[in-house]
């Protein structure tokens, strides 16, 4: 047996070098080629649902899309026409309530994590809680808001829906804001402190303005997620066939419609008009969510430039 493992070349003047050539007959090359093909095909297949969803949305949703959808009220069974103006308004209001709760809370907690005491035990606990909330099932946010708001106030309401959504927004806002604050170069902070700024002045005049794009990106991503959530609204805001405002007053303590719940309610009915409306609402919802996402990404891209 030769000491050499390879079918090596003898030291003749013109050694045989065919074993150095590429060949698909070589088992390893063939295997490599086959595996690459499999992975490529699986990756393409993974994108099929995305294109299918988008196509269906534009095909079925776009078909019934009209201007009236945006200001009319949902139709009853067997009724023709109608729209989901109240659901769009409801979604906007509830996401607004959620943002009003989650953004200040998230940003201040992030300031604690990044500035006040980054390495304290409390900071570690807060980060852990943030991670727990990130993987928190959205339906349980609804269960919590049901117990904490609905049972307490005695009824389904936009506020309950907003509270449920705020729990889902909080971790995204908090963790991205912390990251954005940490991205601010140390030398900037040192410059401000070196000039005799108090911590608050340093944060207010240097840190927050510098990290604002990053924070806004997180907020937009959280808004996008919250706008599409259905499960936490099912039994907190419930649904309503009417406008949220009665005679000019916005009634935040009444059951409130939302696009997501409208899609859910109308998806399982046998009435053609309502099903078509569900598709149109899905198209509008996806466009809303994607817009928020794109804005968020555009902001973060500007930061990199």
């Amino acid at each position: 047996m030769s000491a050499n493992i390879h079918p090596s070349a003898p030291s003749t003047p013109t050694p045989d070098t065919r074993h150095l050539e590429k060949s698909l007959r070589n088992k390893q090359s063939l295997f490599s080629f086959a595996m690459s093909a499999v992975v490529g095909i699986l990756t393409l297949l993974a994108l099929v649902p995305l294109f299918s969803v988008v196509l269906m949305l534009f095909y079925r949703g776009g078909k019934s899309l009209s201007f009236a959808l945006f200001y009319e009220l949902p139709p009853g069974p067997m009724q023709e026409g109608g729209g989901f103006g109240n659901a769009i308004l409801g979604t906007v209001i509830m996401v607004g309530i959620a943002a009003a709760i989650a953004v200040p809370m998230g940003v201040l907690a992030a300031l604690f994590l990044a500035e006040t005491a980054p390495d304290s035990r409390l900071a570690k606990t807060v980060r852990f809680c943030g991670k727990v909330l990130t993987g928190f099932p959205s339906i349980l946010a609804g269960v919590f808001a049901y117990g904490a708001v609905v049972l307490l106030t005695g009824g389904f309401s936009a506020v309950a829906g907003g509270v449920a959504l705020s729990i889902l927004m909080l971790p995204t806002v908090m963790l991205t804001a912390e990251e954005a604050l940490r991205m601010v170069p140390r030398k900037m902070k040192e410059a401000a402190i070196g000039m005799g700024a108090t911590d608050f002045q340093c944060v207010w005049m240097v840190l927050l303005p510098t990290s604002l794009p990053g924070i806004l990106t997180g907020v937009m991503l959280a808004v996008a997620r919250a706008a599409g959530e259905t499960a936490p609204l099912l039994f907190t805001a419930l649904f309503s066939n009417y406008w949220i405002s009665a005679g000019g007053n916005v009634e935040l303590m009444q059951p409130t419609a939302s696009l997501a719940v409208l899609i859910y309610n109308f998806s399982g009915v046998p009435f053609q008009n309502q099903v078509e409306l569900a598709w149109a609402a899905a198209l509008v919802l996806v466009l809303l969510v994607l817009t928020a996402n794109l804005i968020g990404q555009a902001i973060s891209r500007r930061r990199i430039d």
Partner: peptide, 28 residues
């Protein structure tokens, strides 16, 4: 005062987010 209030409020909201998780678990 502003500085103190700022430090205190970040501290408070950090606690609040922990308390929220505890409250969710306890309430359910």
């Amino acid at each position: 005062t502003a500085n103190k209030a700022f430090r205190l409020s970040t501290f408070a909201f950090a606690w609040l987010s922990v308390a929220l998780v505890v409250y969710i678990v306890c309430m359910i």
